[in-house]
């Protein structure tokens, strides 16, 4: 039972022979249902790490094991929500999710079941009312919600979020964070999220993985966030445990591993 669900072991990545290591010996074990945030300054290779877990990138050394099976290629069991939503502009919101459903979780379902499953996932992110719109007709936050619905519709074992709220305004971001928290509580999906937002990391995750600066970035510290769920951003704002966790991450990022250029 205590077997690790997702096991990232000794992952190093270099782009091309002779180039410096981007990631150096990353070791990380994630439990089933856990919400892990990976935080670090830009250029520290955190997106590279996510791409290795997704299978979009092959590690130079080491590897990733999910439920006892080595990751060798991308697949729907590790659905990715991309930073810039990556919806296909010529398909409607419904068709974007449906395409993923048809090729992944929907295999073996009847036509009506696939339709229902698509709508169910759109409803999960409250986008069922905009199903027939095209991506250019909806806001950035809505696009990102559709991206989340598309990823969830694949029934992934691990949901990979690559700075999913980075391009959104603060209010929209807060709204989406609450939705992701609710979905995580509902479905118990294992989540690995890349972020550079300290509040977001503390609010959402069970554990925060802090990366040192690149090149040859590695894991600097791991912080357990033992805040009870469900969490509410207003109640937490003055909670000493929240403040302490936040301070620990800030100290890591701006004291011990400040960007040389930013100093």
């Amino acid at each position: 039972m205590e077997r690790d669900f997702l096991d990232i072991s000794r992952v190093s990545v270099r782009f091309g022979p002779g180039a410096p290591l981007v990631l150096n010996g990353i070791d990380l074990k994630v439990r089933q249902g856990e919400y892990v945030a990976v935080i670090g300054h830009s250029g520290c290779g955190k997106s590279t790490l996510l791409n290795v877990v997704a299978g979009l990138l092959t590690a130079t050394q080491g590897g990733v094991i999910l439920e006892g099976k080595e990751v060798t290629e991308p697949g729907p069991d590790r659905a990715v929500v991309f930073q810039n939503h990556s919806l296909l502009p010529w398909l409607t919101v419904y068709e974007n999710v449906k395409l993923a459903v048809d090729r992944t979780a929907g295999r073996g379902m009847s036509r009506a079941e696939r339709h229902d499953w698509t709508l169910r996932n759109l409803a999960l992110v409250r986008m069922e009312g905009h199903a027939q719109k095209r991506p250019h007709e909806i806001s950035g936050g809505m696009k990102q919600r559709v991206g989340i619905a598309r990823a969830l519709a694949m029934k992934p074992k691990v949901l990979l979020l690559d700075e999913p709220f980075g391009a959104l305004d603060a209010l929209t971001r807060a709204h989406l964070q609450d939705q992701v928290m609710a979905i995580h509580a509902d479905l118990g999906t294992t989540v690995m999220m890349i972020t550079h937002d300290v509040d977001e990391a503390v609010l959402l995750s069970d554990r925060i993985v802090m990366m040192t600066n690149g090149p040859t970035a590695t894991i600097g510290e791991v912080l357990e966030v033992d805040l009870p769920r469900p969490r509410h951003r207003l109640a937490l704002a003055s909670d000493p445990r929240f403040i302490a966790a936040r301070e620990a991450v800030l100290r890591f990022l701006y004291e011990r591993h400040a960007l040389p250029a930013a100093a």
């Binding site: 997704a54 299978g55 979009l56 290629e73 991308p74 697949g75 729907p76 590790r78 659905a79 990715v80 991309f82 810039n84 990556s86 296909l88 010529w90 395409l99 993923a100 090729r103 992944t104 694949m154």
Partner: peptide, 26 residues
Amino acid sequence: PADYRNVARVIRLSPFDWFLRIVVPA
């Protein structure tokens, strides 16, 4: 765009579908 390629890889589109549903419209 590389993003579309990544989406197609994650949902494991067949080469035929990749061509017809992504490359041609793009």
